[in-house]
């Protein structure tokens, strides 16, 4: 069975990508499972989807524990533990990243010996959420790596999964899939089907006899305020608002009030400061700032920009 996991952000079309690959396997005569997996997270938040394919009926269900292939459509997720890109990897897990950083650098950065491929980003869009072909480009590459899906099948799968889109959109998606399919030609059939999970030599679950806790402990109650600040919604952000204090007119009541996430605080001397642990990168502040003092820069370029200190 092939076990393939897709990682991306909400809004990047991971569900569609996994469905195209699932459909392609199905058209090629495979039994298939494909499913997105998300919780309360929204646009920009890390999500994943998965595809299983096998020549015999698939009984396994739920999340993929040990993937044969991990596809990442947004390389800003790779370093985030919360995204779980490296979760459950084995020696034979292969990685496919949609990234302009080369394979060697990723292997070095992640300290991985696993086989790893990258597909160059094929758009000028700075914001990863605007890279509309990330998913389908990954699918083209993944299809080639399996070696059991041809371009005609891939084309048909895209046409069927995107039947409600315009002919132009469909053909552009096919072009992108074909490009990556060709790009990885020399790695055809590198992915092998994973084996069934062995019932011998497994690690048994450590079940316990659950003792009743007093109701005060085991009610679904949160005692204390403001604990959501421990959730780093800043991880959702692909674009970063940066205040240029030399242009700031100290009208704090605008950006601080309009920020939906309470992520812009007001300093003692009436400047504002953006809380990057929580800013989701909606860019409302950038749009509302009357003096255009807030810049929008791509998150991946953030460390190249020197942040201005809040004036004292």
């Amino acid at each position: 069975m092939y076990r393939i996991r897709f990682h991306g952000r909400g809004g990047q079309g991971m569900k569609t990508a996994s469905r195209i690959l699932g459909r392609a396997f199905f058209l090629a005569g495979y039994e298939v499972q494909d499913a997105p997996r998300y919780g309360a997270e929204r646009r920009g938040a890390p999500i994943f989807a998965y595809v299983r394919a096998a020549k015999s009926p698939i009984n396994e269900r739920g999340i993929i524990q040990h993937p044969d292939l991990v596809v990442v459509a947004d390389d800003s997720l790779i370093g985030l533990p919360a995204a779980g890109v490296l979760s459950g990897l084995t020696d034979r897990t292969i990685f496919l990243f949609y990234s302009d950083t080369d394979e060697k650098s990723w292997q070095h950065r992640l300290n991985l010996k696993n086989t790893l491929f990258t597909i160059p980003v094929d758009t000028q869009a700075v914001d990863p959420l605007q890279r509309r072909y990330a998913g389908v480009s990954c699918v083209g590459g993944a299809a080639r790596l399996t070696g059991v899906l041809d371009q005609a099948t891939l084309k048909k799968a895209i046409e069927e999964e995107m039947a409600d889109r315009s002919p132009h959109t469909v053909s552009t998606n096919i072009d992108h899939a074909n490009a990556t399919f060709s790009l990885l030609a020399q790695h055809d059939t590198i992915i092998e089907e994973g084996a069934a999970i062995s019932a011998v030599g497994y690690e048994p679950p450590k079940w316990l006899e659950l003792a009743p806790d007093p109701a005060a402990i085991c009610a679904p109650a949160i005692y204390g305020g403001g604990t959501s600040s421990k959730v780093q919604t800043g991880l959702w952000r692909t674009m970063r608002p940066v205040i240029q204090y030399d242009k700031c007119r100290q009208c704090w009541w605008i950006c601080s009030t309009f920020c939906p996430d309470s992520a812009i605080s007001v300093t003692e001397n009436r400047y504002t400061r953006i809380d990057y642990d929580h800013c989701k990168g909606c860019m409302v502040c950038v749009m509302q700032c009357p003096s255009h003092a807030i810049l929008a820069i791509a998150e991946k370029d953030a460390d190249k920009v020197t942040l201005q200190e809040v004036p004292s």
Binding site: A40, A216, P220, A221, I222, Y223
Partner: peptide, 20 residues
């Protein structure tokens, strides 16, 4: 009512959703 009661100065978010 023990630990479950609503009043000023005793923040309590009750019956929250769970994930997982």
């Amino acid at each position: 009512s023990g630990s479950i009661h609503f009043k000023a100065g005793a923040p309590l978010s009750h019956a929250s959703a769970v994930l997982g």
